[in-house]
Nucleic acid binder design. Structure first.
Length: 271
DNA sequence: ACATTGACCTGGGAGC
DNA sequence: TGCTCCCAGGTCAATG
């Protein structure tokens, strides 16, 4: 479900209720997520004060003096602030109850998400230490992309969805950014010129920022931490618009499958 | 080192 | 109404 704008929207939605709160207790109803929720998570988190809620790639980091809880929403995960006595529904796997009387509830029907614990420096964690730059950060630009693409025959869409190259770009925003940059998603990464890589980096940044401003994209069930859907769907140019007219040239939007994922593009506007 | 594929799960919608 | 099939916003591990 969530790409970078949706994860960041969730972070901003829950942060006011979580920041500076002490963890009163942790309730884990289902440990079988993408990786098992570690047995130590209750012991490590309980009694700790959450000093910051940060985001790295699509991971949310709950920082405490004792270490960091890492949470990933996978494909179907969502977070809500609730009253702790609200009865849990199916797939409500974890509650983190705070001393202010509120709780953070993690729901994830498909169980592709995870909740892990990192002692010490969370950035040294195996899941975080090999990640590429943040697309909204200062080190990410077209020259970087072009350099990394040298000698790589993989399609540009799969290239920008590779978290070792750049994080946070999922299936929706990869299609949207390539449309905005006028690049065909099947083009080999090494065959994109430096000029067009600069356009692509700018497009990735612009699309993510616009989606963030709209509170993310709700296709079926995404909700931000405040329970509101995201409104970026209305601004999508190609994703999920097969056979609908291109908003620029009016030719029908094409769809194909790349690396087992649906891809949408305009054959006239993208080369 | 790189590219490709399978695997992990449940739920919702389309089609019959 | 109910069944089957296909698809879904992620990403890691295994294989060549």
């Amino acid at each position: 479900m969530p790409e970078l704008p949706e994860v960041e929207t969730s972070r901003r939605g829950i942060a006011p209720s979580v920041a500076e709160q002490r963890v009163a207790r942790v309730v884990v109803r289902e440990r079988r997520l993408r990786w098992p929720v570690p047995d130590e998570i209750e012991r490590k988190l309980t009694g700790q004060r959450v000093t910051a809620i940060e985001r790295r790639a699509k991971y949310l980091l709950f920082k405490t003096p004792a270490g960091t809880a890492l949470l990933h929403l996978g494909m179907s995960g969502s977070l809500r602030i609730i009253d702790p006595d609200e009865p849990p529904a199916k797939h409500d796997h974890v509650d983190i109850v705070f001393s202010n009387g509120k709780a953070l509830r993690f729901r994830d029907p498909r169980r592709f998400g995870c909740l892990l614990w990192a002692d010490g420096d969370a950035m040294a964690h195996p899941l975080l230490c090999k990640l590429g730059p943040e697309p909204l950060g200062v080190t990410f630009d077209g020259d970087y992309l072009w350099e990394r693409a040298r000698g790589r025959s993989v399609a540009i869409k799969q290239f920008i969805m590779n978290a070792a190259i750049v994080v946070g770009v999922g299936n929706i925003y990869a299609s949207e950014a390539l449309f905005e940059a006028g690049i065909h998603p099947g083009r080999q990464a090494q065959r994109v010129s430096k000029i067009r890589m600069r356009q692509l980096a700018a497009a990735i940044r612009a699309v993510l920022e616009r989606a963030l401003a709209a509170g993310g994209t709700t296709l079926r069930d995404f909700r931000g931490g405040d329970g509101e859907p995201g409104y970026f769907r209305q601004q999508l140019n190609v994703y999920d618009r097969q056979d609908e007219p291109c908003r620029v040239c009016a030719k029908p939007v094409s769809a194909s499958v790349q690396g087992q994922r649906s891809t949408y593009y305009c054959t006239h506007c993208q080369r």
